[in-house]
Design a binder for these strands. Structure first.
Lengths: 352, 352
DNA sequence: CGGAAGATTTGAACCGATTCAAAATTTACG
DNA sequence: CGTAAATTTTGAATCGGTTCAAATCTTCCG
């Protein structure tokens, strides 16, 4: 057999045509005389040449036809986290329609992440900025490729961002429960803080938070205030978005003399963990306690009971993000999309 | 500012060194005299050059440091299907540890798929062969990169495959239920057939099936035979692995005069749909009907009740698959891994 | 001071294709 | 048949780096 690799040049020589013609046979066949085309293709087959190597083409064309989705979380995050999954599903659908590939970029540590971002073969990046978003943006910027950040709050308007109206969404959630008659609330936050914020008052909380959770918290507070509920009376517990930290928070919450009748969870993931905890302890949802989530992931719909939540327009986010990269249509300003309240069975008026 | 792009050559010229030295500054800094290195780096910064472009390096090095995971399903499949997700989670973990990227390859139609496989910038492929596996293998083969097929049954031993012992797994499932005392079984298959196989007898079923479902079916049959249960008496219903086709199958099944007391589902996904259907109709699991799945996806553990199932060693599969690509350690023969029975709460003795 | 050994730097080839102006060939037509 | 127009083919440049043998520069030592 042929040792080494067969290159286009080899085929061209063997077929007795110029490399330019050989190239055309594969990439613009209509321009080559049929007879020649057949011959070249024949020779190619004989030599075991299977069309142009993508690497050469790429170098020349400069376009990869793939977009990178990056996050500071480990790679498995894309498949494990409900929010990431919901988003990726939609992004995947859009990419599928346009014939674009998806490259997952991530790494355990910052250094590896930097390397991975620099060496990812993509035409641009979609950044999942759950945490440490600024750092991710910083790394990506260097790459000098189009990118768009998701879920990144922040003052820096030079960063193209597609976000959602966290403040309004949280307000909607709080208002819905307050309208149902609830007055004793508790918040389960996305971020983790060392002290239980509920105990230390609202000051440090607002300061130490990432913008997503800050806005959601503000939205809750703002609306509850309208109902005469003061910040200080609403315990806020940080979590790590995993089962055990949610359990810890709930243990503390329900050990108190006046446990909440309504739980404002900053994500569906946390809300679902909370529902599990409650159900396992015989606390009825929504009978004893109402739970409302945030995000609108598919799992919220199939949970038992169905989780009332604030739904993000994943479709729209995905569509805009992909088009921002592919059509180089980066938004001028930071785009903020609206969220909607989806009412299911995890919320009801408090037991009187 | 600099118009166009800054190339390594530009930096070299501006710094008054050869391109070779400039290259070394970035890729093998220890070989360049410190003074020169500093100067070149300084110039680079001034010019806005952020290190070697990956495309050039790639062309030369030939290695991408990414593996492709391909499937004939749409791209969203990777994030939506529980089995794919479970596998991807593990693959992602392994890749994370080795600093390898993941590129998702897939397409709506065969033609696009071929194109996508050919143009994916990867060092090798892991093939998720749920359906149409042979075609996928065929396409990938042309690419002349290392690849390994998962879940591909078949006689062709020239294809490197990591599989599981479907026959033994199915046998284990059937035996467990039969030992519990069940005698009236029904099978929910992964494949879809036009006619309900149960009605037409076992012949066509075995013939028309993909190897995975064929082996599982054979495993069921084989073991049930030991308990004196004949093939003909076990209805086998095809599904499309979606809610509605499972519903259809169950409707037919439970409309019969003697509905089954035990359901052998060929995947957890199907089993979970079945449990939902049963629960919604007030049929108790495992009180009235026992359900056993196959695969061992995470969702099986958190379902209510927990789903008894045959667990695949996802960890091991992922580890071997990735290493097969990265270390070019393609298995000589087809590897078959063992599965294990995981007993949860969806199975119990039949109501006497 | 001469020369060997070691440390740096150079320059050109190479990776595998695409592209395009110019040359060669074919076709069309008076 | 001659020539203009249209169609094909050619050849060399280019994409943006890496690599390595050879050339040059430093050190070190007798």
């Amino acid at each position: 057999m042929t040792k080494g690799h067969v290159r286009l040049a080899d085929v061209a020589k063997a077929a007795g045509v110029s490399q330019g013609t050989a190239s055309n046979v594969f990439s613009r066949p209509e321009v080559v005389r049929e007879e020649v085309r057949e011959r070249v293709l024949g020779i190619a087959r004989t030599l075991g040449y299977n069309g142009p190597d993508i690497k050469g083409r790429l170098l020349r064309a400069g376009r990869v036809n793939a977009i990178g989705v990056a996050s500071v979380e480990p790679l498995a995050y894309f498949f494990e986290d409900p929010w990431a999954r919901a988003l990726m599903t939609k992004i995947a659908a859009v990419c599928d329609a346009t014939g674009t590939g998806i490259a997952l970029v991530s790494a355990q540590n910052q250094q590896k992440l930097a390397w991975n971002i620099n060496s990812a073969l993509v035409d641009g990046f979609i950044l999942l900025c759950v945490e440490g978003g600024e750092r991710l943006v910083e790394l990506t910027r260097r790459r000098q490729l189009p990118f768009i950040a998701l879920a990144l709050g922040g003052a820096d308007t030079s960063i193209p961002v597609i976000g959602i109206d966290n403040l309004a969404g949280a307000a909607m959630a709080a208002r819905y429960l307050a309208d149902l008659g609830h007055r004793r609330f508790a918040v389960l936050a996305i971020d983790h803080f060392d002290e239980h914020v509920g105990a230390t008052g609202p000051g440090p909380a607002a300061r130490s938070l990432k913008s997503t959770s800050r806005d959601r918290l503000l939205g809750y507070w703002q609306t509850l205030a309208e109902f005469g509920i003061e910040r200080e009376s609403v315990p806020v517990h940080g979590t790590r978005s995993d089962r055990s930290s949610v359990d810890t928070a709930l243990n503390a919450l329900f050990a108190a003399p006046q446990p909440p009748t309504a739980i404002l969870a900053m994500s569906d993931r946390i809300a679902l963990f909370a529902m599990q905890w409650l159900t396992e302890r015989g606390i009825e949802v929504p009978g004893d306690v109402s739970v409302i989530g945030f995000d609108g992931v598919p799992e919220a719909a199939t949970a038992e009971p169905g989780l009332t939540t604030i739904a993000q327009p994943f479709d729209e986010i995905a569509r805009r993000a992909v088009s921002a990269i592919l059509d180089d249509a980066l938004p001028d300003a930071q785009e903020t999309l609206d969220v909607t309240l989806v009412i299911r069975d995890s919320t009801a008026p408090p037991r009187s």
